[in-house]
Amino acid sequence: MNPSPHILLVDDDVELAGMLRDYLIQEGFAATAVHDGEAGVAEALSGHYAIVVLDVMMPRISGIEALRRIRAASSVPVLMLTAKGDDMDRIVGLELGADDYVPKPCLPRELAARLRAILRRTQQSGETTGGAPLVIGALNVLPEQRRVEWAGAPVDLTSTEFNLLEILARNAGRPVSKSDLSELALGRPLARFDRSIDVHLSSIRHKLGCLADGRSCIQTVYRQGYQLIRE
Rank of each mutant, 00 (worst) to 15 (best):
L94W: 07
L107C: 05
I25D: 09
Q123D: 14
I70W: 08
L81F: 04
G93L: 05
V148M: 05
T160F: 04
T32Y: 03
R116W: 13
V52K: 09
I70G: 01
A72C: 04
A73V: 08
T122S: 09
H35C: 07
F29G: 06
T128D: 15
V53R: 05
A73N: 05
R68P: 00
G18L: 07
E149A: 11
D13E: 15
A132M: 09
V41F: 00
L142R: 11
V76H: 03
T82D: 02
L54S: 03
L157D: 03
G18Q: 14
E144P: 08
H48S: 14
G40A: 02
L142K: 04
P133H: 10
E149C: 03
G85H: 02
E38K: 12
A30D: 14
V148T: 09
P154H: 08
G85W: 11
A42V: 08
I70R: 04
R146P: 05
G130W: 02
A112H: 08
H35G: 06
T122A: 15
V56P: 03
T129E: 10
Y101D: 09
T122E: 15
L96K: 11
P154Q: 05
D13I: 06
I61V: 11
T129G: 00
L24K: 14
A42P: 00
R71N: 01
R90A: 11
P105Q: 11
H35V: 03
G97R: 02
R146H: 07
I64P: 04
M58G: 03
F29C: 07
V41H: 10
T128P: 00
D36H: 14
D89G: 13
V92Y: 11
R69A: 02
I91M: 06
R69H: 03
T158N: 03
V41W: 01
S74W: 08
G18V: 07
N140A: 10
Y101N: 13
L45F: 01
V53E: 10
A31P: 04
M19V: 14
D22Q: 13
A72R: 11
Q124G: 05
N140G: 00
A112C: 14
G131D: 14
L16I: 15
P154Y: 05
V52N: 02
R68Q: 11
E127I: 13
L107V: 04
D55A: 13
D89M: 07
S46E: 07
R60G: 00
S46F: 10
V135N: 06
E38W: 01
E95R: 14
A117Y: 02
R68C: 07
R71M: 04
L54W: 01
G47M: 11
V155D: 10
